[in-house]
Simulated assay, not measured.
Amino acid sequence: MLLIPIVVPLLTFLYNRDEPRLFGFPAFYWIQLLLILVGVVATAVVYRMTKRGRRP
């Protein structure tokens, strides 16, 4: 699961363009921000899944 936020940014053909624009920002910038959110979500999911097995 943690490989997703590592591998997807390496696929530059996904965001190596200017169009489409979102609120005036080129695709490169808003896709990079989206990839940050993907990394946060993936990390949170893995944290929650591994936390269940532990007892305080």
Rank of each mutant, 00 (worst) to 15 (best):
V8R: 11
P56F: 07
G24H: 02
V46E: 06
G24V: 07
R54D: 13
P26C: 00
G24S: 07
F25M: 15
V45P: 02
G53Q: 05
V41Y: 10
E19P: 04
L11T: 10
L33Q: 01
A42D: 02
Y15R: 05
F13G: 03
L35H: 01
R55V: 11
L2V: 08
M1T: 11
W30P: 05
K51Q: 12
L14W: 01
R54A: 03
A44Q: 08
T12N: 12
L14C: 04
P9M: 03
G53T: 00
L14K: 08
D18T: 15
V40Q: 13
V8H: 02
F23S: 03
G39I: 03
G24Q: 08
L22W: 15
W30M: 07
L37Y: 09
L14Y: 01
K51R: 15
F28R: 06
L14F: 12
V8A: 07
Y15V: 02
R52G: 02
V8P: 04
P20F: 15
G39M: 06
P20C: 11
A27K: 11
T12M: 07
G24L: 08
F23V: 03
E19T: 12
Q32E: 10
R52K: 13
R17W: 13
V41W: 04
P56G: 13
L35S: 01
M1R: 05
I31C: 11
T12V: 15
M1C: 02
V8E: 00
R21M: 12
T43M: 00
Y47K: 13
A27P: 05
R55F: 12
V7I: 12
I4F: 09
P56D: 14
P26A: 07
L34I: 04
A42Y: 00
K51M: 13
I31L: 04
V38Y: 01
L11C: 10
F25P: 03
D18L: 14
T12P: 04
P56H: 10
G53L: 08
P56K: 14
P26F: 01
L10A: 11
V38W: 04
L35D: 00
L11G: 08
L2H: 12
T50N: 05
R48G: 00
R48N: 08
D18N: 09
V40D: 01
Y47V: 15
Y15K: 08
L22K: 11
L35A: 01
P56L: 13
